[in-house]
Each structure stands twice: as structure tokens, then as C-alpha cells.
Design a protein around this nucleic acid. Structure first.
Lengths: 248, 248
DNA sequence: AGCGCCTGTTACGATCTGTCACAAAATCGC
DNA sequence: GCGATTTTGTGACAGATCGTAACAGGCGCT
């Protein structure tokens, strides 16, 4: 059901050593080192690393490639709760079961650690607990943004937000070429839209000159500022007044 | 701005000691103890404890009452990212700034800790780091469910899911009376709907006999199973087969 | 090079939710 | 207690997005 196109080839050449700069800042990256000891596994596009509902026994780090986290509702509706790229760690916050299926979008290489081992190491090394917490806090923040997107943004704003967030996650994405390794269906299921709506919006953004297609799975952001305005980036804010919430 | 009003007097007699049973299970609750040392502050309905965009200097625990976390977009659109009830801790995962305004819905009593102090205590006591992490992981899980709700559920399913989740958070909520301290507008902004749609759906659920109004800010769940079916509870699952995610 | 499949695009009617208007009910303040 | 304000409920209508369907184009395979 998932035929793979040659997409993969387009992804790799510029792929960084495993982490984007943003991920590295202000961290000692010991989790990074922990995973670095593990062997690398490979997944073809469409292959799953774990399935929704299975007992959660591992934690993963994506080395290169791209993955999606998919949740299927009882009646078949599909939601993608996130995309994973090089350097991302997934599984940190899981309880007993995997809440999503985690599948490769492009050819992907990853490393795994058993949760047991992971927890042991976190307990052993004092720096790892906080780092794990930090990563989860970042994930939480991104998920909150996704809630805002889904609750109150229209289709055009959703797509604009999505393209920008992808651009930010890719080295030189702003103003440059942004790779879209996922299908339109993936984008739709991530943005709470249909595939047709995503397609129409992409066409409209192209007509407006905000983006330009670069093959089917990449775009060039031509007017980043306009796109950002559309995306309703809520600048975190002009609310600069120091009204203290009263000191206890 | 925070009139230390005489609210404390209104302190509800039947209020539990500050935590629902569910919150307590499997935890040593040392964070609980940490907050217990702090003085109690009171908020009137509509009063904010912190404002979106302000520097995040405190962590809070709700003692009694109910609060909402509100994010306002640049053009005024409003999103409620969550509701807080007795025992809930908020601020654990914040970075530099508060991402939301946190306001009282009902008369509320809470305790606060400076982030500095909070971090110091977490660093000092080995049990606190994991407990903090656990709480954040629970929050993450709830937010993921909210993403699914917003991405793929229709209005009726959203309201049903909401009512059930509230019922679960309230002692004896299943089958009993569920308090809805928030306004219809709050519900709408939480569920990504309009106030009119929420109102219509509530009416429809009442006509269907699934719920019965109990005053304007409470309902009785008459057919919990039917409501659960509507809410698309995706049972986490019948996917019981032990297909290993390929052992390395 | 030619063929076939899959993904993506475009069109159009259907549907759900939003918008606007207004009435009823509850709450607040004096 | 009483009027004013806020909140909630309801209906008619509009609009955005969906769902179906037909078509186009790229890519892999032979």
C-alpha cells in the first residue's frame, strides 16, 4: 500500500550529521551520546518501527530520514500527530503502550534503546534527567501550537504554518528550498484537512507567489514574511509590560 | 491586580484535600508536599494568575476551584488550551514566557512557588525529577488526545469527548452529576467550535437522552456508554497481537 | 521507449459549521 | 427588588471545507 518513490534520493545529500543546530544549543547532548553507542537500523518508506497499541518497550532516535506518528481511530479516521526528522528522539513520554504507529516516510536510519536501559541510564547520569525533561517540554510546546492551529486556524493558515515550521526545522529552509518528504495525505491528516483542500491551498499559495513548487516534494519559499503573516505567528508578544502577577 | 479577597472564606466544605484519587495513585506526591508549605492565595472568577507573554517566574498548584489557560492570537481569536482543577500543577514545562494567560473560572485557591525555588527543590530531592516528568508526560498524553479531537472529530463527538473527560476528572462523575464551571464560550474555544454550535449540540444530546441538564452549569450523564461511543474512545485497543517491531 | 500505477490536481455539488439576528434566561449591581 | 448586562438558546442563511469523481503527470517497470 505504500509504494515508494525515489523521493528518498532527494533527501539525503544535504542531510546533516544527525542533529540540527537548534537541537544542539544549550544542551550537553548526553542522550545523543547514549544513542550513539547503539547500532543503526534501517527502514524503508512505509515500514513501521512500532505499532499503536503495542507494549512500549523502546525509545528511538532518528539518525537520518523522516518518519510520521500515526493514530488511527476506531472507524478508520487517521491523524498524524507529528513528523520526526534527524536528531529527534521519540518515545520519551510514553506510558504502557505506544499511542501511535511510527512509520518511515523516506528511507530512514534510526537507533533504539530499551526503555529499561534508557531509564537506568537516566537514573545513573544526573545530566540525563533534565535533558529528557527539556526535550519533552519542547515537544509539549510544539503540540500546544498544533492545538492552536487545529482549533482556530483556517486551511490556508494551517498550510502556511506547516510549511514555515518545516522550513525552520531544515537547515537553510527559510528563503531556500523546503523538502516535503510526506505525501499530501500525510499533510492533510496532520493539519486536520482533506487531501484536496491541501492541494488547492498549495496551488493558491503558488499563484499568490508565496511559494514555488520545486518538484512534487519540495517547495521554495518566495515570500517568507507574507507566509509568516498568513501563518499568524503570534510573536509572543508586544505584551512587554512587567505586570508582576503579584509576588506572594 | 489580585485582590487578596476574602475568598478563602468561601472555601467549599466538601472540597477534597486537594487531590483526586487518580492523581495520587502510584506517586509519592512529594511535589504535593512541596506546595503544601506555601501560603494559599485566592482568585475571583475572571482574575488571572499570570498573563500570556509575561516572564514565567512561578509554578502553581490549584488547591480548589477551576481555571482556564487561554491563548489569544494576534487578531483576537481565542483558544483555551486546557482547564485546571484541584490538584493540578501548571507551569512545569514553561520556558522563558508564559504561553497562556491562566485565569480563574470559579472562585479558586492556589499555591505558588518561584521557578528558582522549584528547580532547586527538584535538584535537591531525587524523587521530584521523575514526578515532575510523570506529570508532564500525563499532560502530553492529554494534549495529544486533544489534537486528535480537533483534527478529526465533528462537533458532536467533540462535545461528547469533553463531557466524558470532565466526568472522569470529577469524583463520581461517571453516571453522576458533572459540573461545568466554564461558560459555553470557554467550551467552544476549547473545542474549536462556536458558542452556538456547542449550544445546539448540548440541546441535541439532551433530546437524545444522553445527558440531562442540571442547572446551567452541570449535567447528568444518562447514557455513559452511548456518550462514550459518540466520543470515539479509541480503546487502546484490540490490537493485541504481539508483532514485535522487528528485533534488531 | 512505452505502459501502467500511484499521487496529485481540479471541478462541482453536498454538508457541516459559522455568522448574524434576536429572544429568553440568568446574573450582577445598585 | 429591579433594571441592566451577560450568558445561553434558537432559527435562517452563508460560506468554507468536504466528498465524489474525472483527469493529469510523474515514476518505475518491462
Amino acid at each position: 500500500m505504500y509504494t515508494q518513490s525515489s523521493l528518498s534520493r532527494r533527501l539525503s545529500p544535504q542531510a546533516p550529521s544527525g542533529l540540527f543546530a537548534k537541537e544542539l544549543l544549550g544542551r550537553d547532548c548526553s542522550l545523543e551520546k547514549l544513542f550513539a553507542e547503539q547500532p543503526v537500523e534501517s527502514l524503508d518508506p512505509g515500514e513501521a518501527a512500532v505499532w499503536q497499541g503495542d507494549r512500549a518497550q523502546h525509545v528511538f532516535q532518528v539518525v537520518t530520514g523522516a518518519m510520521r506518528t500515526v493514530r488511527i481511530l476506531s472507524d478508520g479516521r487517521r491523524v498524524i500527530t507529528g513528523f520526526l526528522f534527524a536528531g529527534d528522539i521519540v518515545g520519551i513520554s510514553f506510558r504502557d503502550r505506544y499511542p501511535t504507529t511510527i512509520e518511515a516516510i523516506a528511507p530512514t536510519r534510526l537507533r533504539r534503546l530499551t526503555r529499561q536501559r534508557f531509564e537506568d541510564e537516566v537514573a545513573r547520569h544526573p545530566g540525563l534527567g533534565p535533558e529528557r525533561f527539556e526535550r519533552l517540554a519542547d515537544e509539549m510546546s510544539a503540540t500546544q501550537d498544533q492545538v492552536v492551529l487545529l482549533a482556530r486556524k483556517n486551511a490556508e493558515e494551517r498550510v502556511a504554518s506547516f510549511l514555515l515550521s518545516l522550513a525552520r526545522r531544515q537547515p537553510g529552509g527559510d528563503e531556500g528550498t523546503v523538502e516535503l518528504p510526506m505525501t499530501r495525505l500525510d499533510m492533510a491528516d496532520y493539519l486536520g484537512l482533506t487531501i484536496e483542500t491541501v492541494s488547492r491551498i498549495m496551488t493558491r499559495l503558488t499563484r499568490n507567489g508565496m511559494i514555488a513548487p520545486a518538484g512534487r516534494h519540495a517547495i521554495v519559499v518566495r515570500r517568507p514574511a507574507a507566509l509568516a503573516a498568513l501563518a499568524l505567528e503570534d510573536d509572543e508578544d508586544e505584551i512587554d509590560d512587567e505586570r508582576l502577577a503579584r509576588a506572594a
